[in-house]
Design a protein around this nucleic acid. Structure first.
Lengths: 340, 340
DNA sequence: GTTGGAAACGTAACCGATAACGATTGCAAC
DNA sequence: GTTGCAATCGTTATCGGTTACGTTTCCAAC
């Protein structure tokens, strides 16, 4: 029965029950001051009409809605993992979740999306919001927790320990014998991108391997952005023996480019990603990467937001979660050390 | 800068610009009847205050919001796939998406969740809604498209051709030589569950294999529900040589139970699922299953909903999408035909 | 100099619900 | 027979916008 008539409102209920809307409101919200017989009448009217309170109208008038928001730009695999964590954390908490996603992928409309969505929701609809990988700083009148904030952000946030993770990757490659290690960076405004690049630099420096700035390609986390960069690195005469991409999405594109150029992985080239999205395990060969447990990022962010909303948060406002190196088939000692 | 002051409203802008809220509204919505100089003043005030219109307030007064809704109970892997398809379909369409998910997994609060969420959103916030696997019939004052409806539903819907998919599975198993094939059914109220069971029955009947009702376990699509059922089937003296579970989530649990009982897959037991969720390819052994392209389900549902909202829908109101058998390592000829 | 009409803008009703407040009633205490 | 208090319920302002309608202003046409 789609396309029923107009939605049934509180005044419809009030009319049928022969009381005012205020009384209906009191019954609905279980407030004091309604006689038992009136309650029964109102309830029966609600039942007969199938009335449900409007979230919109309620939120406009009330301060607390028991709904948390999550705003995201696009909807990728990692977003799904984050959501699972968020939902698990919210389970049985009494908070519902509203996710707002805009439809304009990579369009001109996008600039400032996170702030726009946040403002549109947080005025009244939600008690607080989680923002997933914003492109800029955010502000809000209700509590906000950011997953993967921009650099130097002071907003409460949850992030993986990208510096340690990236360091571990490079140490792994160095340990295998690689010396010329290419890097494909992410969107530089994000703290995660900066930390991963910094980890790459530091690990090389500490091992005494001279940094070659021409081995660094400037991507933006968008998988497509890695294609020309990988091609440029791999078509060089002195091509690197390993490429570390700042995200799995980009690393998977590196694999494709390598195959296209006839380079064997891991024989001719080792490839490492970052994130451990589900697709990485399915790649051929399976991708060595860094697990940052998006699930836990989501879980912790939701937990923090709940506490911020209820005003019980005691811990630090910036949380760093550990990462874990996942070694799979895409890394091996460089060919050159074994060859002639 | 979280916890800024109170959110800036239209009247704040009006005060600063020295005009009425009506004029601000006209400027914001590009309506006719405002002088160029006033427009400039209002725009500058909006800029200075960082004003964004409240989605809630706007939706309350307006009929069209250019926001579509999606309501789901929990958040599983298949939900994520559906969402990707929905987002892709909505890309560049001008419609944003709001997803409403309740936090009460499998709680008592859940009964009737789809209707409750639908009513709360569709009154004003959204122009139409997609409902993912409802447990009961739904009605709404705005257009609705259901993914995986309940049986005999007349609401516009998008479903995989579950009957054909399940038939193909059983034919595959029969072709391998299996004759005793167990089945673990899904939540019986769903059309998908019914069709999959019907496909199982018909394929057996057409092959002249006598049906054994004791080989059918009554699950509910919740993975956990398959555990005792699988155990019961596999601990029997005359245990089946193959088990077909109505969902991948349940099939993966069958794999676990088999392992627990010391049964080799596919040596001692063939296992087939349905859905082709990402985890299935990662299982050990990889799960033979039916791909129903959740992505396409989401894509088509969103496409249909867009057209319904704008009133341009011409096609049928019930869409059936083809399925595809994906044979992986969890199926093989039964041991018994090869053994002594 | 009037008049007409369009342009520009403000006023107020309205969307659906909530809550502060006031009004009415019943009943017990004095 | 008052008075006082508590229980019950309606009235109304309010949330942040949108829009029908009314008012004012201004300029061109008569």
């Amino acid at each position: 029965m789609a396309d029923g008539a107009t939605p049934v409102t509180m005044s419809d209920v009030a009319r049928l029950a022969g009381v005012s809307t205020a009384t209906v409101s009191r019954v609905v919200n279980g407030r004091y001051g309604v006689s038992a017989s009136t309650i029964a009448q109102v309830r029966s009217a609600i039942e007969r009409l199938g009335y449900e309170s409007s979230l919109v109208a309620t939120s406009l008038r009330r301060s607390r809605t028991n709904v948390l928001g999550l705003v995201t730009h696009s909807f990728q695999s990692y977003t799904a993992e984050v959501l699972k964590g968020v939902m698990e954390s919210l389970s049985q908490s009494g908070f519902d979740l509203i996710i707002y996603a805009n439809s304009d992928l990579y369009g001109t409309y996008s600039e400032g999306w996170e702030q726009r969505h946040l403002t549109r929701l947080s005025g009244t609809l939600t008690d607080g919001c989680i923002v997933v990988t914003p492109w800029g700083e955010v502000r809000s009148s209700t509590p906000v927790v950011v997953i993967d904030p921009v650099r130097d952000s002071t907003v409460p946030s949850v992030t993986a320990d990208n510096l340690a993770g990236a360091t571990e990757v490079v140490e792994h490659l160095l340990g295998l014998g690689h010396r010329r290690i290419g890097f494909i960076a992410g969107r530089s405004s994000l703290a995660a991108a900066w930390s991963r690049e910094e980890g790459y630099r530091r690990a090389l420096a500490e091992a005494g391997v001279p940094a070659d700035p021409t081995l660094i390609g400037r991507g933006d986390f968008n998988p497509e952005s890695a294609i020309p960069l990988a091609r440029a690195l791999l078509e060089r005469q002195d091509r690197p023996t390993a490429i570390f991409a700042a995200s799995d999405g980009m690393a998977l594109k590196v694999l494709e480019v390598a195959k296209e150029l006839g380079l064997g992985v891991p024989g001719d080239l080792s490839v490492v990603g970052f994130d451990n999205i589900p697709e990485s395990a399915l790649a051929e060969p399976a991708l060595t990467t860094v697990d940052q447990s998006m699930y836990r990022l989501g879980y912790e962010a939701a937990h923090m937001l709940k506490s911020l909303v209820t005003g019980e948060w005691e811990g630090p406002r910036q949380i760093l979660l550990p990462t874990r190196l996942v070694v799979r088939g895409s890394t091996a000692p460089p060919h050159i050390t074994q060859g002639a």
